[in-house]
Design a protein around this nucleic acid. Structure first.
Lengths: 365, 365
DNA sequence: CTGTCTGCTGTAAACGTTTCCGGGAGTCTC
DNA sequence: GAGACTCCCGGAAACGTTTACAGCAGACAG
């Protein structure tokens, strides 16, 4: 049977069929096979043969090879610090819907807030595994920034960035956001307002600290440093920080740097026998689903996370389409949602809110 | 100046330097350049020249091309239904730590529970963008299963699967898990035990429904169908379902198919003026951080999500290392954590639990 | 001085696609 | 009946890496 140069069917190194396998089996060239498989061109007869051959051998295209050729993967990445933080979940949902509408897929990566991690991610993912990425860093060093600036793939940053950084950027004004909370509490007659913050060496931590001090000053209230406490941005730290604070001071209100911290604070307060909001009012930040899930429901400053996510995704898609675009910067205004945890009236279980609350600013100052 | 065949520096189509660019600039062959860049071989002089050239042009390797050659990407994907569900966050954290330890990176994808979505993901990602994937489907059709079975990359499934499915699989026994909750409630004297479940056409929904019925029967308690209600697995649906249930029946306890539903139930109960646990005891499922964040803290059946994630990741890594392994199946036992929401004594704010609670089964039946 | 060995180097062939290009066959128009 | 036009096909060149192989120079032993 061995006769006229009978070549074995070419197949991938791991035994999987390639386009060569299909072409050989269908008795056409790989060019024709590829065309048929991509649904572009081919005579009816060719189409039939190639389709049949592909089905018989169970052909599935190698996405990597395709990407190498086409220079795109159809994947977009989102890098955030902590997926456990509901604010990122909301952001992610918004981004996902935009990205999916463009026919791409979203991949999420949790960095744990470590710079090294984020830079490594850039080094790996950005080097062509994805068509673009959205990144929401909480710490930004010069190194980091440099890596962002000359990333090989388009990058959009959600969060504060040096004013002249040539990177697409969607930000909010959390300084002002903290101000909204303070204004609200002062208007409700609170004067010993405490603050439970995240790390000061993070961008949001620093901004919120500054906002808190500025807001108090704006009302002519002297800041009692014993009313300020710092942890990280998670629940346990928020609870611990609040316990430390309560051990040395008597606040009549607490502003918390995010909702997870606020939940921790709420628990610390209740466990210490304080009533919320009668003894101590609590205002969180980010206005996540969690705020509505607490009892009492938490007042919270919305930083428009879904909106920021949506806009960032749009910026990214535009930049992917046209990398020559000048860097753009967008801003989303904060607003305050007042709920039971800081309401003047004693707490009564509220009726169900329209749960995933679309973007209807509730009280905007 | 134009003289002896002076070729322009070869570079990527989008103007970025390639290994050719570096090689030309360093005056060596691409083979030598590649070797130096990979840190294997090269004379001191060559190394110096190549390093210099690479730095000058800002060379960064194209990961796709490298993967095409090496047949691996160093990426592992996790596909879950809903990242907003904290149970998946815990799973993800466990997986991430195993995966990262192997020098790979984890990407997360939310499928929204739609089969089409998951299949599409398999079609895209699995076709070589990742070295393997862990998938936790809540619905499984034959089609779906077929796609899993002959996935081109290793797949590990977290969740129930047909017994003979030749796919690596880590499961728990949520039927038994529901039983633990019912046993506990019955032992506490509750008799009109309700059940708020997720969709019955999902694998976990069906299993939990069966478990609930079996457990009641085991105690000789007749099931009142008015005490059973169904929504989806999220907060809002849990709350709405509980409201419907309360409108027509008077449970003295509620078993909820996961913690998000339990939170919804808790709110519906409190808003309807019921006291928890005095009037109605509540037990959730998954034992997520959320359960400890509620007031009163929620009793919850742990299904070992972190443990399942960890094991799944290990299975996956083993399979990537040796694809010829026979399909394996592992099981994680459920356990019950009793907290205030179902405690016999009236609710008192508990001291802080060791927050991320490592795997210490608290009450195991 | 010859032969073997060692260490670098460059050429070229992969990896699995897509796509440009030229050629051939068929149809239509004048 | 010849030219223009359309359609389909196959060969071959990309895309940017890694790597097998062979050649070549120098070091060393006999």
């Amino acid at each position: 049977m061995r006769g006229v140069g009978r070549k074995r069917l070419p197949e991938s190194v791991d035994g999987r069929p390639t386009v060569h396998t299909v072409a050989a089996r269908a008795g056409v060239s790989i060019a024709s096979a590829s065309r048929v498989l991509n649904g572009v061109g081919g005579s009816p007869e060719t189409i039939r043969k190639v389709r049949a051959a592909a089905a018989e051998v169970g052909y599935v295209p190698n996405a990597i090879a395709r990407s190498l050729q086409s220079q795109r993967t159809g994947l977009v990445a989102l890098a955030v610090e902590d997926i456990g933080n509901p604010v990122y979940v909301e952001m992610m949902r918004a981004i996902e819907s935009v990205v999916a509408a463009s026919g791409r897929q979203l991949l999420v990566h949790a960095t744990g807030g470590q710079i090294a991690n984020e830079t490594a991610l850039l080094r790996r993912l950005a080097h062509r595994y994805v068509d673009g990425m959205i990144i929401s860093p909480i710490r930004v060093t010069d190194n980091h920034l440099a890596a962002l600036v000359d990333s090989p793939v388009p990058v959009v940053v959600i969060g504060q960035l040096a004013a002249d950084a040539p990177v697409d950027n969607v930000r909010t004004d959390s300084r002002t956001g903290v101000g909204l909370a303070v204004d609200h509490l002062v208007a409700a007659g609170r004067r010993r307002i405490g603050f439970v913050n995240g790390p000061l060496d993070t961008v949001p931590g620093a901004a919120r600290d500054a906002g808190f001090r500025a807001a108090l000053a704006g009302h002519g209230i002297a800041l009692d440093e014993r009313l300020v406490e710092v942890g990280d941005f998670r629940y346990a730290a928020g609870r611990a920080a609040t316990e430390r604070l309560l051990a040395r001071a008597e606040p009549d209100a607490l502003v918390c740097a995010n909702d997870l911290i606020a939940v921790g604070a709420l628990h610390a307060l209740l466990a210490a026998g304080r009533r919320v909001p009668e003894d101590v009012a609590v205002v969180g930040m980010d206005d996540t689903e969690l705020a509505r899930m607490m009892f009492p429901q938490l007042s919270s400053v919305s930083l428009g996370s879904a909106e920021r996510g949506r806009r960032a995704a749009e910026l990214l898609l535009q930049r992917i389409a046209d990398p020559a675009l000048p860097p753009r910067r967008e801003q989303v205004a904060p607003s305050l949602a007042v709920r039971a945890s800081s309401a003047a009236t004693p707490f009564v279980p509220a009726p169900a809110e329209p749960a995933p609350a679309p973007r209807t600013p509730e009280v905007t100052a």
